[in-house]
Amino acid sequence: MTDLFALGERRLDWLTTRQSTIAENIANANTPGFRPRDLRAFVDLLDAQPVRLAATHPSHIATGARDEAGGHRAGPAQAWETTYSGNSVALEQELMRASETNRGAAVATSVMRAFQRMTLLNLKG
């Protein structure tokens, strides 16, 4: 049940990382040769749960314990246009992505809050 908080946390982590990636793209909107990046979709991230090796001994190297944070750094985004300088950032597209991210965060935090209220209600009886 309480897994929902973990899910919410991952979602927020993904959203904030995406926001900083979009910030990179926009800050470099006039840098020659710059290619914008985007993250892999959150759904793909959830589906692609990495297979982990079981650590049966304390000296085993931990694999993929916390690789999501770096793992969803993704490759180039599909761009609308490429200018003569080789830069392919479209400001409108990036701003759309940014507001999409913000809406996503609003939903995620609202759901988390509703869930917390529900938990509290159960506790109070």
Binding site: L12, L15, T16, Q19, S20, I22, A23, I26, A27, A29, L91, E94, L95, A98, S99, T101, N102, A105, A106, T109, M112, R113, Q116
Partner: peptide, 20 residues
């Protein structure tokens, strides 16, 4: 303006997280 907008939105995201 685009950078400023991102700044604003990041601040909103921050506020949402704190509101939790």
């Amino acid at each position: 303006q685009a950078s400023l907008q991102i700044f604003r939105q990041a601040r909103e995201l921050h506020a949402m997280t704190i509101d939790l």
